[in-house]
Amino acid sequence: MISHSYQIPDWIAKNSRVLDLGCGDGRLLAQLVETHAIDALGLELDPDKIAACLDLGLSVVQQDLNRGLSNFNDQQFDTVIMTQTLQAIRRPDLALSEMLRVGREAIVTFPNFAYIRNRIQLGLAGHMPVNPQLPNPWYDTPNIHLSTFRDFEELCQTLSIRILDKDTSNLSGKRTWLGTVWPNLFGEVAVYRLTKES
């Protein structure tokens, strides 16, 4: 289980409306309800995780993110969050555009494929990486669109998305010194705060 990155709560305004795409068991939203008194909604596919969210008193709707967010109004939320899910979506580019249509800001985290361990496994050993960050073998993985800090920033530019904040954390959601200095090589998890270029 990957913990959410430490920066996220700092980027959420108190009493704001927050949508979490792929909210899992609702841990992040429940924490933000507690600390930031947010108005929270989660989207999740797995009924067991939906039940876990309900246990926490959250509102959660079963929805396949690959089908888009067309049932949401423009700018309905202050922040739309997607943690460790972008790489598993069929069209990450469309997902990002939709996030910034329904939300004023977006927070996105994903595994950085250029992390040094992946580079070693692919570049030196000649294998698709399998490790705690990317635990699945290539033929059976939900992670179909892996990218790096650099790739992601190029996409943002193409989509006219402005990067408000950029950071990295390890899999436990903690800051690492090396990752902060050299994110594309030493950052395990890429963490971005985004908005639409005005």
């Binding site: 909604l41 009924p47 939906i50 969210c53 309900l54 959660v60 709707v61 049932n71 109004n73």
Partner: peptide
């Protein structure tokens, strides 16, 4: 959702 109301939903198998 569009009315901004708290709703939970599941399509059960």
């Amino acid at each position: 959702i569009q009315a901004g109301k708290p709703v939970s939903y599941t399509r059960l198998e």
